[in-house]
């Protein structure tokens, strides 16, 4: 009998497949469908504090610009605290989802200020989130900002959120740190309960016909999974925090690879968006089939089998992988292409 149960952030999950933050969790029915398809947990789409703040200002302007401007009416709306509940729709959704399914529902939070991170996290906890995934998604466009300050900011966020809530807190990271491992260890030391590796940046594209820059949304593909897999393999056993793999899951095989590298859970949105929510059942079926074929009884047996392991030099591991990859490329494409 194959057992898929696993533990992530201290939470018991029925399997290691987690639906990551995406538009697939917009409604309670969406989340119920994910649960029905078999995922072990759901990370809700992200609450963007900045959006809430912008909406606050926009709502304020809608109210304020007509106030006290005409003798017949000094205002046009009842005197209610309209923005105290800027996050309310999200929290209400979180509450509904948490009540609708028997798997953990994790809130995803993109804050704008330390106070905001802490306040929103507390509200999510109150709304019934099983855990919080903090997502400091930001492309530092200010060329004067030093890397150290960005890293420091990540640690501060963990401190702020951890001190605000009692439920577990994971952080979704960018792969673009000069020393990813050190960053992860610092976050680990700051008390983060999980690391989600890695975030993808939806980078704007250029339309050469209209000469405009516009948003570009592309789903991830397995070729993008290497960097996350590598870092998970390296971090396995080197941090206390749970490790979640995300990006580039297309088949059950991709799930297996992440587990072998050392992931506690494997997250996917692109595959589910590409193939539909029910595809989670397929992925789990493929995982189970592979385990049965390879005679693994539990996920725990699989996890980290191909991780770097204690005593192995990470640089050597990476170097080895790099050299092997170069050699492989030379075999396939010839020497010239690789050198150029």
């Amino acid at each position: 009998m194959t057992t898929l149960t696993t533990t992530y952030l201290g939470l018991s999950l029925r399997n290691p497949l987690v639906a990551s933050a995406s538009p697939l969790s917009q409604t309670t029915d969406d989340v119920r469908a994910l649960a029905d398809a078999g995922v072990g947990a759901v990370v809700l789409y992200s609450l963007f504090e900045e959006q809430i703040r912008q909406q606050e200002v926009a709502d304020y302007e809608l109210v304020a610009m007509h106030e006290d401007s005409f003798g017949e009416a000094t205002s046009y709306f009842p005197d209610v605290d309209i923005v105290a509940g800027g996050a309310t729709p999200y929290l209400r959704h979180l509450e509904n989802c948490a009540g609708a399914v028997d798997i953990p529902v994790i809130g995803s939070l993109n804050g704008a200020s330390l106070d905001g991170w802490a306040q929103c996290a507390r509200q999510m906890q109150d709304a019934g989130a099983a855990a919080i995934e903090v997502n400091p998604y930001a492309v530092p466009g200010d060329v004067r900002v030093a890397g150290a300050s960005i890293e420091q900011r990540h640690v501060e966020i963990v401190h702020a959120v951890k001190s605000a809530v009692t439920i577990p807190v994971a952080m979704k990271l960018s792969p673009f740190f000069s020393a990813t491992g050190t960053m992860c260890r610092e976050l680990d030391a700051a008390g983060v309960d999980g690391l989600v590796l890695f975030n993808r940046f939806l980078q704007p594209d250029i339309d050469i016909e209209t000469l405009t820059v516009g948003p570009s949304v592309t789903l991830s593909s397995p070729v993008e999974s290497g960097i996350a897999r590598t870092w998970i393999a390296i971090l396995r056993g080197r941090v206390k925090a749970s490790l979640a793999a995300t990006t580039g899951v297309e088949t059950g095989a991709d799930v297996v690879k992440y587990l072998l590298a050392g992931a506690d859970v494997v997250m996917t949105a692109s595959a589910l968006m590409r193939h539909g929510t029910g595809y989670a059942t397929t992925l789990l079926g493929e995982l189970t089939g592979w385990m049965e074929r390879k005679r693994f009884a539990s996920v725990d047996e699989v996890r980290g089998l191909l991780a770097l392991g204690d005593g192995v030099d990470a640089a050597q591991y990476e170097r080895a992988g790099y050299v092997a990859a170069l050699t492989h490329a030379k075999d396939m494409y010839g020497d010239f292409l690789v050198r150029s």
Binding site: D59, V63, F77, I82, G85, P89
Partner: peptide, 16 residues
Amino acid sequence: ELRYRMLRQTAPEEAE
């Protein structure tokens, strides 16, 4: 419209 959002933000259950 703010006239509807106000209720969703202040009384989400009733708004639903």
